[in-house]
Amino acid sequence: MSHAIDDDERLVSMMLQKTFFVMLRTTADATRIAPAMHDHHRWIIALEKEGRIFASGPLSGREGEPAGGMTVFRAASHEDAEAMAGGDPLVTSGGVTFEIKRWTVNEGRLILSVDFSDRSFALD
């Protein structure tokens, strides 16, 4: 039994254990979303260029129906993530509400392929 516990501790110690903060957006007033979308895109791209965004985009249901959105922040604290989220033009317009969740990444794989011959790349 001790061997299994030691092996599990070893496996856990190797995991990434990187903490991010996830903003989950929920529609509050759909009529306010489209007018704020351009400013939202400028806001999120600015944060991306600052290195404060891991990933972001809309969510959809099984049939493709809109189901809010999600942004994964690189933030020092829950409060820092809330402050960033509060600046989202979709939030300030009243189009969406949000909640912040702490997310610890332990496992996964990021695949980046670069072809030097034609300077193409793919992210899977």
Results as ranks from 00 to 15, higher is better:
residue 5 I to S: 05
residue 85 A to L: 02
residue 4 A to P: 00
residue 120 S to T: 15
residue 13 S to M: 07
residue 13 S to P: 04
residue 105 V to T: 07
residue 21 F to G: 01
residue 45 I to A: 13
residue 112 L to W: 15
residue 15 M to V: 12
residue 92 T to I: 12
residue 6 D to G: 02
residue 41 H to P: 00
residue 59 L to C: 14
residue 94 G to V: 12
residue 8 D to Q: 07
residue 123 L to I: 14
residue 31 T to Q: 13
residue 35 P to W: 06
residue 39 D to Y: 01
residue 1 M to Q: 07
residue 109 R to G: 07
residue 53 I to F: 00
residue 61 G to Y: 02
residue 55 A to I: 07
residue 110 L to K: 07
residue 70 M to G: 05
residue 92 T to D: 11
residue 61 G to E: 06
residue 32 R to Q: 15
residue 43 W to M: 09
residue 88 D to T: 03
residue 100 I to K: 00
residue 94 G to A: 12
residue 107 E to R: 13
residue 122 A to D: 15
residue 33 I to R: 01
residue 12 V to H: 08
residue 10 R to E: 10
residue 41 H to C: 06
residue 88 D to H: 04
residue 7 D to W: 03
residue 121 F to D: 09
residue 61 G to M: 03
residue 54 F to R: 05
residue 91 V to P: 00
residue 124 D to K: 09
residue 27 T to N: 05
residue 28 A to I: 04
residue 74 R to M: 04
residue 32 R to H: 08
residue 43 W to K: 02
residue 71 T to L: 13
residue 47 L to W: 04
residue 64 G to C: 09
residue 7 D to N: 06
residue 65 E to I: 01
residue 85 A to N: 02
residue 73 F to R: 03
residue 13 S to D: 15
residue 36 A to K: 05
residue 94 G to M: 12
residue 1 M to S: 13
residue 26 T to N: 10
residue 67 A to F: 03
residue 80 D to P: 00
residue 124 D to Y: 14
residue 112 L to K: 12
residue 26 T to C: 03
residue 24 L to V: 11
residue 89 P to I: 03
residue 74 R to P: 00
residue 25 R to D: 07
residue 57 G to C: 09
residue 117 S to R: 13
residue 22 V to H: 02
residue 12 V to N: 09
residue 98 F to K: 02
residue 47 L to S: 05
residue 85 A to W: 00
residue 58 P to V: 04
residue 101 K to F: 11
residue 119 R to E: 10
residue 91 V to C: 04
residue 28 A to D: 10
residue 26 T to E: 14
residue 41 H to G: 06
residue 38 H to T: 13
residue 2 S to C: 03
residue 36 A to F: 06
residue 86 G to F: 02
residue 100 I to Q: 01
residue 47 L to K: 10
residue 118 D to A: 05
residue 69 G to S: 06
residue 8 D to A: 09
residue 123 L to Q: 13
residue 93 S to H: 10
residue 116 F to E: 14
residue 105 V to K: 09
residue 113 S to V: 10
residue 25 R to N: 09
residue 27 T to G: 00
residue 1 M to A: 12
residue 42 R to S: 10
residue 117 S to Q: 12
residue 2 S to N: 11
residue 1 M to H: 08
residue 76 A to C: 05
residue 4 A to E: 11
residue 23 M to L: 13
residue 37 M to R: 12
residue 123 L to R: 14
residue 19 T to W: 03
residue 60 S to G: 06
residue 106 N to G: 14
residue 28 A to L: 13
residue 103 W to S: 11
residue 57 G to L: 08
residue 63 E to N: 15
residue 33 I to A: 02
residue 86 G to T: 02
residue 82 E to R: 13
residue 103 W to T: 07
